[in-house]
């Protein structure tokens, strides 16, 4: 068994994302000046270093969480949101030890986050204060979720 490493698999629809569009509509109704919302599923795995490459390959072929025909997959070697992103997760989430029900050698645990980016009319990230407001008033229920920036 080798040292554990973290992997973040950021999976984003490349076809129209109806959920993101609904969120955008709600944000507009709330009076928040946002031009686009981008939603991603983020799977954060803790895996033995020796098996990290194999896990990368498994994620890319298990089509229940990633389908190359409709998703973009970004593999990150750290589990931190990028500037402009907020990750939403439940306080009491229990890590799973399988990926979509499949056992993957070396996997120690995997958790899910929902990532949001909000963009202005130029396609740039909205100011942090606006993202915070959208997060606290809609994207995240602080009674059972937390927002990671």
């Amino acid at each position: 068994m080798s040292e554990p490493v973290e992997r973040a698999y950021v999976i984003t629809l490349t076809i129209p994302d109806n959920e993101a569009f609904t969120a955008l509509t709600t944000l507009a109704r709330m009076g928040l000046d946002v031009d686009a919302a981008v939603r991603s599923d983020v799977w954060i795995a803790t895996v033995d270093a020796d098996h990290a490459a194999a896990l990368d390959g498994a994620i890319g072929t298990i089509e229940t969480i990633y389908n190359p025909n409709k998703h973009r997959l970004e593999i990150r070697t750290d589990a931190q949101p990028r500037p402009g992103e907020v990750w939403v997760t439940a306080y009491d989430e229990t890590p799973a030890i399988t990926v979509a029900g499949r056992t993957v050698e070396g996997l120690r645990g995997i958790v899910h986050r929902t990532a949001w980016r909000l963009l202005d009319e130029r396609g740039a990230d909205v100011p942090a204060s606006l993202l915070d407001r959208a997060t606290e008033s809609f994207l995240c229920n602080l009674a059972f979720q937390r927002a990671i920036r």
Binding site: N18, E19, T22, A23, T26, R29, M30, F138, L139, N141
Partner: peptide, 16 residues
């Protein structure tokens, strides 16, 4: 409501 997008009830709660 609204496919429970974002969270169950969240979108509808903000509906007009």
């Amino acid at each position: 409501a609204y496919e429970d997008r974002v969270r169950a009830g969240a979108v509808a709660a903000h509906d007009e």
